[in-house]
Design a protein around this nucleic acid. Structure first.
Lengths: 144, 144, 144, 144
DNA sequence: TTTT
DNA sequence: TTTT
């Protein structure tokens, strides 16, 4: 009934922009969020949290976010599941963002030159290619 | 650098209270959080989000929370990983709570009678038995 | 650049539904939010936080919320100011809600019978009559 | 029962560090938080939100925060009131922070040279001198 | 009274 | 001015 997440962290890599079969933009990236200092010393630790954005926000994120950039994300936790190649159910937890703030200094080119994310081939297929499951979500069922 | 989650949902089952080898209480439960209405009709949908609490809060949750109870949880997203039986790295995402509010009507017995969670056998081993990985976290490394 | 508030508390009174000159619904109420226990004993304390909602959400809140009802509110802090009768600038801080959850048991009548809030007279004037300042906000400038 | 605020904005001025009569550090500053773009064009708008921090966090904020610095704040809304010189009750709404992140580039000197906030005279009196009301809060009643 |  |  209420599900709200706010994160500030850094992108672990350039974002990935893809499109659903019906042409809806979806961008994914992972935020490294440092845990509060472990006073006992020890190494620096972080949580690596997958983030998804949709539609207009997806395009904007793909255009402006880059690896290492400090970013604030607002959204909700989503747990989706699918059957993998071996017929086993896999659960994926991610943050579906509805608000993203670019906090790092804008190191320039929103043109995204030299970044794969900027040559989206509008390939029709799974926007989450890594898990090998094509998704074909009708627009009215999109998580955002 | 900032990682905050607020959830309101219902327990999918009674909470599970266990103890780490060093005797620290840890309680786990899953919150079913209804997604905002899908105006297109369709079935009711929910996210099922695993929650962990530690120490004093763990004891309190085990004492007062029960299946179906409406509950508010504040905490942070944590992604831990371990190697499973087949030597594959598995990622578990959960909310580590530092604040829990019992919203449902208090249906009585905090004594927890008739609930397995109330006969913790202080078994020394993995507090997250399901993934089959014993953990032996020294107190100063506890996530909370 | 980011401004998010989440409250759970109880209405101190029935909500007040009014309309802007251009006919936009606006509902106000105050949430009493208990502070965390003061271990030193002492009396129970609470913060009394004014909440505003607009449009469709305003109508819904006026229909379902009542004095004493446990309620979750999501929104942002807004500080508006106006000149009072004595020509002094007054600052009003309130939470502009974009999401409201009714947590208490639904004590029945959404018809709102016997409650002033249900006979809005569409009076053209200040929706926040108490401070005596008429506001005539063009729709495109509404805070929500 | 739950009261959480997360803000990202810029300091409108250097923070002010003072001490309560019993010697507890308290730092105040105001965050300018830009509102989401008003698509209708129009001027840039912001909310100016007063923030208070206590104890160790107060010292750290006084040492590192400066006018204009981008800052994330986590805390709760507090509404305190006092009687002013004319015997009228005045309500002050502010965010009591328990977590502060410095997001701007660290423009150097944490020594705070050339900033009044760094020569706290430990004056015994109201840490919120502007409203002219001395406060003498026993340590166990501090809001944080 | 306000920040970039 | 306040809720349970």
């Amino acid at each position: 009934m209420l599900n709200r997440v706010i994160l500030i962290g850094r992108l672990t890599a350039d974002p990935t922009l893809k499109y659903t079969p019906s042409g809806v933009a979806v961008t994914q990236f992972t935020l490294a969020v440092d845990r509060p200092f472990n006073s006992q010393g020890g190494e620096r630790e972080a949580d690596f949290i997958p983030v998804v954005t949709w539609r207009q926000l997806a395009e904007t994120c793909a255009n402006y976010l880059r690896k290492g950039r400090l970013t604030a994300v607002e959204g909700r936790i989503q747990v989706r599941n699918y059957e993998n190649n071996e017929g086993k159910r896999v659960y994926v937890t991610e943050v579906v963002a509805d608000n993203v703030r670019f906090l790092g200094p804008n190191n320039g080119n929103p043109s995204g030159q030299g970044n794969d994310a900027f040559k989206p081939d509008k390939k029709y297929g799974d926007p989450f290619a890594d898990d090998g499951k094509p998704i074909d979500i009708p627009d009215e069922d999109l998580p955002f």
